[in-house]
Amino acid sequence: MPTFETVTLPELVAFDADQFDALPFGAVGFTSDDIVELYNATESRLAGLPRDSVVGAPYFAVTAQCMNNFMVAQRFADEPELDVIIDYVLTLRMRPTRVRLRLLKKSDVSLRFLLIER
């Protein structure tokens, strides 16, 4: 199974629903205009939000406001390609939690991905 550090963006796009849900880390795929298309079961469980309530809604503007800043959302907007891992803090179910984020964006893939590892 690909890990948080090794999984590639084409692999993420190619996974079927079960494979995507089975990833041991949170994974969110969203469009260039911030709309969530993919939201895996791991992330749903950790954030306490059912998939239905997240998919189709703006990600940084509505669901993940704590990443709607220059450290995360702005980088997706500014940088043509991204594959970086950063340390971050999320308030999952209002508990400040240390996480690692992996920001993935390629100019020839329309979906961008955010991976979240606790």
Binding site: Q65, C66, R95, P96, R98
Partner: peptide
């Protein structure tokens, strides 16, 4: 010691604290 915080609280605090984690 922070028990609970919502996203906006963290968004305001993190850049101020200069640390990667606010406890």
């Amino acid at each position: 010691t922070v028990g609970m915080a919502n996203p906006i609280a963290m968004q305001l605090l993190l850049p101020i604290s200069g640390a990667p984690f606010v406890t």
